[in-house]
Design a protein around this nucleic acid. Sequence first.
DNA 1: TTCTATTGTATCGGTTAGATACAATAATAC
DNA 2: GTATTATTGTATCTAACCGATACAATAGAA
Lengths: 237, 237
Amino acid sequence: MKNIALPKKDDFIPHLAYDAVIFGFNGTELKIVVLEYRKTNHFALPGGFVQHKQNLDDAVYQGVKNRTGLTDIQLEQCHTFGNQKRRDKKVLKDICKVHDHQINDDHWLLDRFISICYYALLNFEEVTLQPDELSDSIGWYSLHELPELILDHKEMVSKALEVLQKNLDEKLVGMNLLPEKFTMKDLQNVYESILQKKLVRTAFQRKILAKDILIRHEKKYTGKAHKAPYLYSFKLV
Amino acid sequence: MKNIALPKKDDFIPHLAYDAVIFGFNGTELKIVVLEYRKTNHFALPGGFVQHKQNLDDAVYQGVKNRTGLTDIQLEQCHTFGNQKRRDKKVLKDICKVHDHQINDDHWLLDRFISICYYALLNFEEVTLQPDELSDSIGWYSLHELPELILDHKEMVSKALEVLQKNLDEKLVGMNLLPEKFTMKDLQNVYESILQKKLVRTAFQRKILAKDILIRHEKKYTGKAHKAPYLYSFKLV
DNA sequence: TTCTATTGTATCGGTTAGATACAATAATAC
DNA sequence: GTATTATTGTATCTAACCGATACAATAGAA
């Protein structure tokens, strides 16, 4: 096995990390990206560090872009996690062991880290997930079937979902989670996935149409034995 | 003049700071705490650094407590500011010059800092503001009469107010800004100060009473020639 | 006693969301 | 062709809520 280089200390701001809750919508369900460190059984959110001459937002954008291959990403900051206990030497040592790395107790990656959590919304269909050197498994997980995550990453997911819910009406969240054209039912599915509750179909349709944010296109014939729904796209403001 | 010690590098996490937008309500208007560095004409939000073995939240709490003398503080995290350009060597050099400090270009305080912004709500009447060693002026400023603030502190104030507005109904913000007993008009003034707009008196009263969060006490006789308002306090949940 | 400003509450009208109803329709079964 | 079926788009009814208005109940001054 190749001996992989760890991130170098001097490139990055010490004690500072970011983590991203990357949301995608597969047509039915909300999913997030989780990676597994090679052969360690440790699951984590994708994250990274901030370079000394790099804006925080840009660091996160680059990180998500590298993982997903996409450039059209809606990023929002959720919360900064700064508990002094958020460190776990065992996890990193397990990871290093697999890679035949020696790591000393005073290695900078074993320090206490403050992490800024973001959520990202992007088009599920266009993504090809890229594992990095330290992780050989990266994939989409349903919110209800998450593996156990390291540190406080589970809490990050909760916080991200909470912030996403609050932003839902205001920030036109649907845009990035759906393909360009979609049906009203698709949009309702996105809303229901995010809010984690059923919505009333007729009221939902009425409310969305009243917002005057959609363009109605041709019908979508699915081959099913019932009235075909219209396709919509978002009005670009 | 006494030569004051600067914070020591090794005590704190480098490149990381917090700043606090401390809100108080003087009965009429919303105010925030701003400090001025001695004889420099530089105004800033109160802030500080995080010790290596200290929770982020605790650091902010301690800082606000030290400045205000209060222990009953409602703290909420607003946003983390991580722009690479948020540094201003001139400011710190001006401050040090006044104190006859020599400061080198590579001093840690001149580095680029990421700052986590919090807002704090507390009882205006109970506060005695404490300037620290580097600032000889600390005071309450109305939101509309803020002096020019260093770095992105003005943006922090905007963000704090925005988050406060969003949290208003949910987090029962009024509690910490008012004395134990208050009139409906006092509470409405708090709401109007935060939302920066006039509210309809009768609708406000109806909405608040419907929430069932207040206890009605005796009337408050102000000596004015009109019906005396009731005093209320918050129900403790 | 009258007057004035403010408070507490009730009522009316408009808006919004949930519930229900129903027509339109795309494909299938016959 | 015609009936059948599931889904969609829209209209209508009702309950909840907010702004606007009205008005009675004061506490003190004139």
